[in-house]
């Protein structure tokens, strides 16, 4: 699954550590999601959606 997390984070001028703190996850988790190595759970995706004030489908795009 592709995502715009890195771009959205940069737009908010946040580091991976800042975003990790805001979402109560580790920096490694944010890094893995940004690189597309790990897909977040639905609750975590909703947290991101709330934080960036965007619908989930504008943050994550299916590869298919």
């Amino acid at each position: 699954m592709k995502n715009r997390l890195k771009v959205l984070r940069a737009e908010k001028d946040m580091t991976q550590a800042d975003l990790a703190d805001s979402l109560a996850v580790s920096r490694q988790t944010i890094n893995a999601i940004e690189k597309g190595k790990f897909d977040p759970s639905l609750p975590l995706a909703f947290k991101m959606s709330k934080l960036f004030e965007l619908p989930i489908e504008e943050i994550f795009q299916n590869n298919e």
């Binding site: 109560a24 996850v25 580790s26 490694q28 988790t29 893995a32 790990f38 977040p40 759970s41 975590l44």
Partner: peptide, 8 residues
Amino acid sequence: VLDELQKK
């Protein structure tokens, strides 16, 4: 208490 990736 681990997050979802650490737990995995």
